[in-house]
């Protein structure tokens, strides 16, 4: 594409440079890649499956064969944590994607069209904001057969509100700029102007908010699975593994601690990365805001 001049390229490179100079952000990024990589590849190379039981070797402490020991039914804990991590990452990504698509489109249209349309669209968001949405997700789970696909569509469908608000604010600011007026003068369609010219300029803000949404979605999935409303056994997820571990806490604390550490480390990594991205993409705000 010709329109992308050297200017925008260097801006992006500038942000990247700022990001990799931030030691915590880089550590977060590496840790996240390590976690995600282990969860994707680990279950393939592991000699065990997440459902295979070995009733002669239950609640085993960590050893050569089972690096993190086995659970109540003799299943390899490490494999179950890695498979659970897959679920966590998959749900987080999918739900974030759903919320991204809905939120950006909704907020973009609202901010770009403006006027009465904007007022009505934002009023709807205000009303939806006041709904107890965790319970709403539980209601959705109650109504339909429980499956993972539904879970992340439901989470994504309620997580788009903040994204819509943020995108709308940014788009409103851009709408009056000369290059957008130029698009209008050139007779581009509204949709083309919005999606090809306005929204790419909001990308940085969207990216920052995505890194904030992912941990939120992960926690919601863990919350639901902990309560037994998320993934169904024998499938594992970090939330359900912690729950199983809590029941055996007194005799085998490792079964609770291992998935807990996995979840918290991932949240730490996402937090550092998110903070770093915010500082890198919006240097004006980085002072003081922490």
């Amino acid at each position: 594409m010709k329109g992308r001049g050297p200017e925008s390229f260097s801006l992006r490179r500038d942000a990247w440079n700022r990001l990799i100079r931030n030691r915590m952000a880089v550590a977060g990024l590496l840790l996240l890649l390590l976690m995600a990589g282990a969860c994707v590849i680990g279950p393939w190379i592991s000699p065990y499956t997440y459902y295979e039981q070995d009733l002669f070797n239950t609640n085993a402490p960590p050893d050569r064969a089972h690096w993190l020991g086995t659970d109540e039914l003799g299943r390899d804990l490490l494999t179950r944590i890695l498979v659970g991590g897959r679920i966590s990452f998959a749900v987080a990504l999918a739900a974030t994607l759903v919320s991204l698509v809905i939120g950006v489109t909704y907020g973009g249209i609202s901010g770009y069209v403006g006027g009465k349309t904007d007022a009505v669209m934002m009023r709807i968001v205000d009303v939806l904001y006041a709904l107890p949405f965790t319970l709403f997700v539980i209601l959705l789970i109650t109504l339909f057969e429980r499956n993972i696909l539904l879970l992340f569509v439901a989470i994504g469908a309620v997580e788009w509100l903040t994204m819509a608000r943020i995108v709308r604010g940014q788009v409103m600011g851009l709408r009056r700029q000369e290059f957008i007026e130029a698009c209008q003068v050139l007779g581009y369609s509204q949709a083309r102007t919005l999606f090809k010219h306005v929204l790419p300029n909001v990308l940085g803000t969207i990216l920052v908010y995505v890194t904030l949404t992912i941990p939120g979605v992960m926690l919601l999935e863990a919350f639901l699975s902990f309560l037994g409303l998320g993934v169904q056994p024998p499938m594992s997820s970090w939330g359900s593994l912690i729950k199983e571990g809590v029941a055996l806490m007194e005799d085998a604390p490792g079964q609770m601690l291992a998935p807990s550490i996995a979840l918290s480390l991932t949240l730490f990594a996402l937090n550092f990365l998110g903070d770093g991205l915010r500082d890198a993409l919006d240097p004006r705000r980085s002072e003081g805001a922490k």
């Binding site: 571990g245 809590v246 807990s260 918290s264 949240l267 937090n271």
Partner: peptide, 9 residues
């Protein structure tokens, strides 16, 4: 970064 389901146990 340490949610209630981790901190509690």
């Amino acid at each position: 970064c340490i949610p209630a389901m981790v901190m509690g146990p």
